[in-house]
Design a protein around this nucleic acid. Structure first.
Lengths: 223, 223
DNA sequence: CGACTCCTTGACAGCGTTCAACAGTAGTGG
DNA sequence: CCACTACTGTTGAACGCTGTCAAGGAGTCG
């Protein structure tokens, strides 16, 4: 039986993708992870497939000395853990308290043999979307300056989680830095520059709530 | 009719993938591109699917000011141009004189409806492999030092094109740099360091032929 | 042979990192 | 509720890795 996701500003059309993937009759369970908890680890068997209901997830790889590269942030509606192999290729952690729905890969495979091929097609679509994101992120990581990286990050997050004119970032400066291949100090400095230039402003007591004041200028900075 | 690829040191099992993809009866044509020629451009309609017979191909994205990020090198046996969408997301160019086989996407789709689903599965495998490569490349681009990047590059190329103990690089220092998110000078310096440390040596008149003398040390440098 | 590209090497600059101090916020327990 | 502590973010100063600029040599191709 399906568990309904409540009314949520971040509840996008994509929320239905896990349904399309697994079929309407697949058993889906909800689970809530506390802030910082690991959802699955790199090289662990990929048993489940997840969809974010509320909260936010980071998936990343580590080098032996602790350097971290965050590959993607998963926000409400996003499906993740689609490894199409035996093992997860990332570690996934809840950034804040996060509720996910999940289903087993076995259910996926069974649904596939039942209905023919739409399931494989859905998996292909998801993998292709991940690949596209990875491709543009390689351009960012390899060839953009710190300011361009932060601008690109803001544009992406603006698209994905701005509601009522305000973007509430669930992730820390360190998370952003590890996503952009920078240090947290450089991210902080770039944000200060953008604020100084009137591109954005912080609202509220914390620095995690951002209002974009000049999107054309921001887009121009992304090159 | 299929065109046979000649005996070639770089002729890997993967060479059969386009067959598996498109079926043994699909019409495949060969074509040879001269050094530096564009095979397809970013945002062009993705009409064909390619496999390298001989030579080497670079696929890359550009920023408006000319900064280039090479996403992948395609070597003999590799299939490329699998965009799974209307448009190519990269530009592909022949690095040296390169012969490719190609088939139209339409043939692929027809093969799919004929035989059921193995075609989609093959596409999924290819896209998944691309994604895996992109994922580890993001870690490299975002978090590795120049020496680690060059070491990782050598390890990858050693695996993919070392024959008879010698690795003959088809690409220039600039290509390597644009692949690793560095400048060509930094690549050159890193190679000089590795030579100085006895990890590798150049053979022949040019600096494109490399012998690896200490693979364990090289692997250690990749972290 | 001459023009061109490619590669190496040196000197220097600069962007981003590192190290450090400080302030604001959140989380915890009395 | 408030004090205490840990966490998070900003900012400054100095460093260093990589980029930039430049020169020169070697290889390649017409």
């Amino acid at each position: 039986m399906l568990v309904r996701i409540g009314e949520n500003a971040n509840h996008r059309p994509r929320s239905r993708e896990l349904d399309a993937l697994a079929g309407q009759n697949v058993f889906c369970t909800e689970f809530t992870y506390r802030r910082g908890r690991e959802i699955f680890g790199e090289a662990e068997p990929a048993e489940y497939l997840y969809q974010v209901c509320t909260g936010a997830v980071r998936s990343f790889k580590l080098l032996s000395d602790g350097r971290r590269q965050i590959n993607a942030f998963h926000l409400p509606g996003d499906v993740f853990g689609v490894e199409n192999g035996e093992m997860h290729r990332f570690t996934a952690e809840a950034i804040v308290e996060t509720t996910v729905r999940f289903t087993t890969r076995r259910h996926l495979l069974e649904a596939q043999t039942d209905s023919g091929m739409p399931v494989t097609n859905s998996v292909l679509k998801l993998v292709t979307r991940n690949l596209q994101h990875a491709e543009s992120h390689m351009l960012l990581l390899g060839r953009k300056t710190s300011l361009e990286k932060v601008a690109a990050f803001l544009i992406e997050m603006d698209r994905r989680l701005t509601a009522a004119g305000v973007m509430i970032l669930p992730m820390s400066r360190r998370d952003i830095a590890d996503y952009l291949g920078l240090t947290l100090e450089t991210v902080s400095r770039a944000l200060s520059v953008l604020k100084g230039e009137g591109v954005l402003d912080f609202v509220g007591p914390t620095q995690r709530q951002i209002v974009l004041l000049d999107r054309p200028k921001l887009a121009a900075l992304d090159s």
